[in-house]
Design a protein around this nucleic acid. Sequence first.
DNA 1: GATCGCCTTGGGCGAGTGCCCAATTTCGAG
DNA 2: CTCGAAATTGGGCACTCGCCCAAGGCGATC
Lengths: 189, 189
Amino acid sequence: MATQRAQEVRERLLTAAAALIAERGWAGVSTRVLAERAGVGPGLVHYHFPSLRELLNEAALRTMSAVVHEGAAHLSGASAQQGLDLLLGSLDAYSGDDPTSVLFTEAYLAAGRDEELHRALTGLLADFRALLADWMRSIGVPEPDTTARVLASAVDGLMLHRPLDPSLAAEAAVPVLRRLLTGAVEEQR
Amino acid sequence: MATQRAQEVRERLLTAAAALIAERGWAGVSTRVLAERAGVGPGLVHYHFPSLRELLNEAALRTMSAVVHEGAAHLSGASAQQGLDLLLGSLDAYSGDDPTSVLFTEAYLAAGRDEELHRALTGLLADFRALLADWMRSIGVPEPDTTARVLASAVDGLMLHRPLDPSLAAEAAVPVLRRLLTGAVEEQR
DNA sequence: GATCGCCTTGGGCGAGTGCCCAATTTCGAG
DNA sequence: CTCGAAATTGGGCACTCGCCCAAGGCGATC
């Protein structure tokens, strides 16, 4: 059916958009480079999407949503050590100048200038923090809600700084971050 | 003398640029809106600066440099409690959607796409981390170098998340962040 | 095989972009 | 007061932008 090919084009546009946001920055993604990257004619962008703005929002949101929910799935029910390994793993999976890390930061900034994106991102982060707080509660971290908020933002801050601080590697940062979980996992050093 | 007025125009352009980077994003600053904001003719931008790129770099760098060095001046020689108050104070001075916070994040992202800006920002952050580490060493924080790196990036991460997490206030985050300084200031709770 | 609706193409519109430059104003040095 | 360099103006060039649309291709249904 013809609709299937159309769906595939939509998909390719969204995938290309996510990559281009990281490469060129949110405002640097134009309809023409986007269409070229996706391998379609320039007119197709506004056939499948009402505006470039909404295309970018959807592309960023679904990419971020996939990352967050995949992480959350691994975290729920994990032991203290498994959870720490997961955080450590994500810290060297995302180096700070990889497409995913940059996409997150670009989206945070764009949310400050787009109310709709702001609402959606607020919800996505709230879901993630709730899961992170649940995990922390289950392993006995003090003040799990606030700690989850601080740890989540600290990880994003590390992504932001890492490209500007060559010696800020995951294995260096993790022992320090572990102090945030004071009282719960000290014996596991 | 005429040179004085010219210097003032250069100044106004740089100030306007810093404000516009925060408002419209790095790529959203055009020569014409910049000139209008600064109250000068559009042609003056390229009379005082070789390119828009270099103007933006200089505007961001000197603004950030002022913030960093002002903070560093207050920090050096401060007691543990004074230092903590300073950090706490900076956390509610910069809410995350104020011009200064946004400028920092915009500059971090732009540095990933501009080698010259990348080098300058790397140096600026290295200076600040060195001072922060010295302060930590002086009050007995363990692993002061790494802790300084992590705390500096965590603070920027908080700025990034704050607009998307209404309940992430300074007074909530600070007690948790204090755990990073484990062993040095516990008795000061 | 004709028909019809979804999909795709590529060009075009007005606006905005960075950068340039001839013409003009400003103002301190002689 | 005159001169000349520094500073400023505003328009123009070549290009890109988001969005639109007439035209045609495609494939499923009778």
